[in-house]
Design a protein around this nucleic acid. Structure first.
Lengths: 337, 337
DNA sequence: CTGAAAGCGCTAACAG
DNA sequence: CTGTTAGCGCTTTCAG
């Protein structure tokens, strides 16, 4: 069976395609009666509009893109739910693109967006993404774009972030209050702004408590889990950390693995805090003290901003910035209360 | 700056749009020299083809849809990675649709696919999906469709599943070997075929060991976590289970929560097995014995099948069935070895 | 209130 | 090897 088109409806009803089109979009120029006839036949023949024809003509696709490094991560999964909740509401489609932390892939994806495939973009950049000479700044000028969580600070565009500096400061202070003196910060990236913000908060807290910042204080980990495990175990053996802050979810579980391998007791030998939205955090052994990010709300806020821009082109999207607070959830991997 | 089109390239090079189009698609009818000139100018002007124009004309979009209940679930997240890995390889785009276990939403999404928006569909149905009078059978005739994990058995279409019956049989036997005599199976759905397969395996194992199947043996849980927790705690108090099999990831953590609330010791008072791909399973307290599904491979297999059908229309897609084995990973939430 | 006509950007015969 | 022509299905002036 061929696909039903507007023209078939027009022929059957002895009307023009223009009239059908208008009737289907509920235009006020069309009489109630005609609308009813059109809608009835459309339903009967199971008419489904061709989105490509419509997009081509209207130069808008009712589709937004979400570009993230990884989907197997509680933060991003929850953020997607937040985004979806508002997209569904507005009748928009959501295209999800995974960069797997590859800058190359990210670039290729962004380039594709110049085609007009999507009406707007929500993005959380890769750990490799540098500001320089990147299509991002360009793209942000061409179509509505909102950064969430992992922003590119050098690019002028809307941003939804959490209070990374403060969160790291508080996490560090919490460890210090619990008696830690040799704290390590596990960082996932050297260029990522949120990594740097977290490192800043960490350093500020150390300074505020007259604790030294050494070469071992900040430990840079890669995206490769095997390499990370290696680095981690080596570091744990060389430097006798009594506290560790894992700045990503994957790093948090990596710490548990390393401690298990080295028979280090948490929190006896070493206290641990993870930036994580793991729903199982409270059931871990020991339960994990976390910096919990408002993932769903961040996704929702980012999408909301984007749709405001999509609705009214005069909305100053690029000036929008929102910081949504995270919270420190104290559990048994740390000693302070 | 306006978007660069094929016509602009044509004018600049004094060629026809047809020639440009063919040159860009590397047609053999075009001379090497012309191709070079076209490619050079395209690169210079940063030409990006309009996918909607192309899709409209070719009636294919180089896009596939993935329809799943939920993304914040290790199984589906990993499956997406598997799907993505082959889609990226083939240069296809992946649209992800979340049903949130709602049959209504699923129907609306599937209907949209009749528009030709996507070239093929990979789907794992909702817990509410019933076979009857559903758009699925219809859709499977119109465009290539592959079920993965949660199949609709009544619909003739390709399927990638895991060995649910056997997995449940083995899980149950494992509990019995560990001394359990009053085992409960936590089911997420009454109609879902994989739930029924798992229940079958469970019952077979009970029968094989001369254990009775009672009204309390199979416990049906809803999608609402609060209601589920309620049901679970009530059941745990009324019936003195000594073993529990959670057939979904969410149910597995719900069990930990309920046991904590009721101060039930795992595995002392009650042994637990979860169907789950949680990466944190080994770090839980106690570490969780799991039936681990080959999520990534299932996604990959489903996508591979789909692309074979997309490549050659003579490929008998609907006859394809693959069962990829899961594995029982024994940890400390159960006693047998 | 309805219709005629033009065209979004690209591709696929078919000629030459 | 290159060009002409037509049209995918829909929306949008502009006329009537």
């Amino acid at each position: 069976m061929e696909n039903v088109t507007i023209r078939m409806l027009a022929e059957r009803l002895q009307l023009s395609t223009a009239t059908i089109s208008k009737a289907l979009s509920n235009s006020h120029e069309i009489s109630e009666e005609t609308k009813q006839r059109v809608l009835a036949l459309a339903a009967e023949l199971n008419y489904v509009p061709n989105p490509y024809a419509s997009s081509l003509r209207k130069k808008s696709s009712h589709t937004i893109a979400v570009v993230i490094p990884e989907v197997a991560d509680s933060f991003f999964a929850e953020a997607i739910n937040g985004i979806e909740s508002v997209a569904q509401d507005k009748g928009y489609h959501v295209l999800i693109y995974l960069t797997h932390e590859s800058f190359m892939k990210e670039q290729a994806i962004l380039k594709d967006f110049q085609s007009g495939r999507v009406d707007g973009v929500l993005i959380s950049v890769t750990t490799e993404t540098t500001a320089a000479a990147h299509g991002l700044a360009q793209l942000a000028k061409e179509i509505p774009l909102v950064f969430f969580d992992r922003v590119c600070e050098e690019v002028t565009a809307a941003r939804i972030t959490t209070d990374d500096t403060i969160a790291a400061y508080n996490a560090t202070s919490h460890l210090i209050a619990g008696g830690c003196r040799h704290i390590g910060l596990l960082s996932a990236s050297r260029q990522l702004s949120i990594s740097n913000r977290r490192a800043e908060g960490f350093q500020q807290a150390l300074a505020a408590h007259q604790l030294p910042l050494t070469a071992a204080s900040v430990l840079h980990c890669s995206n490769d889990p095997v390499a990370t495990q290696q680095v981690l175990q080596t570091a744990l053996q060389q430097h006798h950390y009594d506290g560790l802050i894992a700045t990503t979810e994957k790093l948090a579980t990596a710490v548990y693995q390393a401690c298990e391998a080295l028979s280090l007791n948490i929190p006896g030998d070493i206290q641990v805090i993870g930036f994580s939205n793991l729903s199982t955090a409270r059931f871990l052994h020991p339960s994990l003290t976390t910096v919990s990010q408002p993932a769903f709300d961040m996704g929702k806020a980012a999408a909301t901003l984007l749709f405001r821009a999509l609705k009214s082109s005069s909305f100053p999207l690029n000036e929008q910035q929102q910081v949504i607070p995270s919270s420190l959830i104290v559990r048994n991997s740390t000693k302070a209360h």
